[in-house]
Simulated assay, not measured.
Amino acid sequence: MIVRRERASDHDAVRTLVRAAFARDPATGTERAPEDVVEAGLLDELREDPGFLPHLSLVAVTDDEISGHVIATRGWLEPTGEPVLGLGPLGVLPGAQRRGIGTVLVHAVLAVAEAADESLVALVGEPAYYRRFDFRPATELGIAAPDPAWGGYFQARWLVEPRTGGTFRFAEPFTRH
């Protein structure tokens, strides 16, 4: 497996991958039709948003096939407006899940973010999964979720010495999904 930046020529394969990876609604567990997978539309919108950071959109390639994708986009801490990152979606082809591809992608995107002098990464995801990457409930770090109902699923990780917290704001496309 190799991990590299996503290319424009990868978009169709990544869209197909995300539709397959999120075919089961994470919140309800029900099966969704490909056109109902909101994460695929979100990803397309994130690529067009001013918060898109091409160096933080990565793919995993296994046997010449894209097997996973992760993206981090520009977010902000309010009220200061400090630029930070929002991670997600992270997707792996169903047949390739539980083989470490997602883990490798998260480590890679965090390494690139840290090398780019980013300060904080936040996400909405399963605490048991993201704990291995040192994510914690954001409230423990002084970071408030855009939606308090997210509770412990809204997590964050400082990449630098912790600074003053605030309320996290994702890139604009997240507000529409």
Results as ranks from 00 to 15, higher is better:
46 L>F: 00
154 F>D: 04
128 A>W: 06
83 P>C: 04
115 A>M: 11
11 H>Q: 12
157 R>S: 06
95 G>D: 12
62 T>W: 07
49 D>L: 01
129 Y>T: 08
39 E>L: 05
133 F>A: 10
64 D>L: 11
163 R>D: 04
168 F>G: 08
24 R>G: 09
28 T>N: 01
108 A>Y: 06
7 R>K: 13
81 G>H: 04
139 T>Q: 13
63 D>C: 12
66 I>V: 15
84 V>F: 00
9 S>L: 01
54 P>H: 03
11 H>S: 03
46 L>V: 06
99 R>C: 08
92 V>C: 13
137 P>E: 09
69 H>F: 14
112 V>F: 11
70 V>N: 06
133 F>I: 01
24 R>M: 06
78 E>R: 14
48 E>F: 00
96 A>M: 12
121 V>R: 10
125 G>V: 10
167 T>H: 11
157 R>M: 06
171 A>S: 10
71 I>Y: 06
115 A>V: 03
104 V>M: 15
101 I>K: 07
19 R>T: 02
10 D>M: 09
13 A>W: 07
149 A>S: 14
25 D>S: 09
99 R>W: 03
22 F>T: 01
89 P>C: 10
73 T>Y: 04
70 V>W: 03
13 A>R: 08
154 F>I: 05
67 S>G: 15
19 R>Q: 07
130 Y>I: 04
96 A>Y: 05
108 A>R: 14
168 F>E: 05
142 G>S: 12
176 R>M: 11
122 A>L: 14
163 R>G: 15
53 L>G: 08
68 G>D: 02
100 G>Q: 08
41 G>Y: 01
150 W>A: 14
160 V>R: 15
96 A>S: 11
91 G>Y: 01
37 V>M: 07
169 R>H: 13
12 D>G: 08
134 D>P: 12
14 V>I: 14
96 A>W: 00
125 G>K: 14
35 E>V: 01
35 E>Y: 03
137 P>D: 12
70 V>H: 11
17 L>F: 06
139 T>F: 10
114 E>C: 14
5 R>W: 03
156 A>F: 03
143 I>V: 14
136 R>W: 04
53 L>T: 10
14 V>G: 09
90 L>P: 00
115 A>H: 13
115 A>Q: 14
21 A>K: 06
81 G>S: 00
76 W>Y: 12
29 G>T: 03
108 A>W: 08
137 P>N: 13
31 E>H: 08
68 G>A: 08
10 D>N: 07
83 P>H: 02
168 F>P: 01
73 T>N: 12
150 W>G: 03
26 P>W: 04
49 D>N: 09
169 R>Y: 05
15 R>Q: 11
139 T>D: 13
106 V>M: 04
40 A>K: 08
120 L>H: 05
41 G>H: 07
79 P>C: 13
149 A>I: 05
92 V>Q: 12
152 G>W: 02
